[in-house]
């Protein structure tokens, strides 16, 4: 009985979670004439015309490329800098280590919206407005604390003896990082790559603020094109949303196993 009740509750939650996505997919595949039908009615005459329109006329091919570049660079660079910083925090002794740890901790606590104006001034001061580099640097700076913390929790689980054995074998700190520690940190690497990619892919605020020129825009900002003050292009918005969601969903499905392992790292011995 309890099992059935549990299944029912889980079923209801699953439907609630997935229904907006299904409605969006339905809307994106309907001809404009079918929009008068209830939104939960599946499309009668399937059409991909809205996808073509959004991709070409809507400029999504350009936005997609911009988003892909920014998110990929974000993810790759984040893995490198966060893992290097975490390695130093966990395996090395140096002056002001505690101070640095406190600074990283503070970084975890500050919401982006609280520092968005000074951030804008800094990026403008460096002449990086309307550049991918400006957004990438801002992304990295704002999220690095989270990933240093995550890599640190993973590295703490790496036996100290392994690090010591490598030192005795004659490895430098960088060789230990690259050849001993990183190869066994795959779950943390995958989790960082996915989360940073996802955050960067979905972020609206920084992109809206730091990149005003159309050719520099990303998908999240591009979606706003389909929404005016008085009108809304529902099919365009839906198709754009699906285009934006597909890569992330695929990535997550592909790396799900590693991702879960990374998120639970250090939970139990």
């Amino acid at each position: 009985m309890t099992r059935w009740l549990l299944l029912f509750i889980l079923g209801v939650i699953a439907i609630l979670m997935v229904s907006p996505l299904i409605l969006t997919v339905f809307t994106s595949l309907k001809p404009t004439t079918e929009l008068v039908n209830p939104p939960w009615a599946p499309p009668v005459n399937l059409t991909f015309e809205h996808y073509v329109r959004v991709w070409t006329e809507g400029g999504f091919s350009r936005y997609f490329f911009n988003t892909l570049v920014i998110s990929t660079v974000d993810a790759v660079v984040m893995i490198v800098i966060a893992s290097l910083a975490a390695y130093a925090m966990v395996f090395m002794e140096f002056r002001f280590k505690l101070l640095l740890q406190i600074l990283f901790l503070i970084g975890l606590m500050i919401p982006v919206t609280a520092i968005v104006l000074p951030l804008f001034q800094i990026v403008r001061g460096f002449g990086l407005l309307n550049t991918h580099l400006g957004v990438i640097l801002a992304d990295l700076a704002l999220a690095v604390s989270v990933f240093v913390f995550m890599f640190s929790s993973y590295f703490v689980g790496v036996p100290k003896a392994l690090h010591e054995a490598a030192r005795i074998d004659g490895a430098t700190e960088f060789q230990i990082y690259r050849r001993v520690v990183m190869p066994i940190a795959t779950p943390a690497v995958v989790t960082t790559a996915l989360l940073e990619f996802l955050w960067s892919w979905n972020d609206l605020l920084l992109r809206l603020l730091l990149m005003t020129r159309d050719e520099m825009r990303t998908l999240s900002v591009g979606l706003l094109n389909f929404q005016g003050t008085m009108t809304r292009d529902v099919t365009g918005l839906s198709s754009g949303t699906v285009i934006m969601a597909i890569p992330v969903v695929l990535l997550f499905l592909f790396f799900q196993r590693h991702f879960v392992r990374g998120m639970t790292a250090g939970a139990v011995k």
Binding site: P159, A161, L162, E164, A165, R167, I168, G170, I184
Partner: peptide, 20 residues
């Protein structure tokens, strides 16, 4: 001297083999 310059080798209680 750093460990690598001492020309020593060590066997650890926990083996400390590189798992990968």
């Amino acid at each position: 001297l750093s460990p690598r310059k001492r020309n020593i080798a060590m066997v650890f209680q926990s083996y400390a083999l590189y798992p990968q």
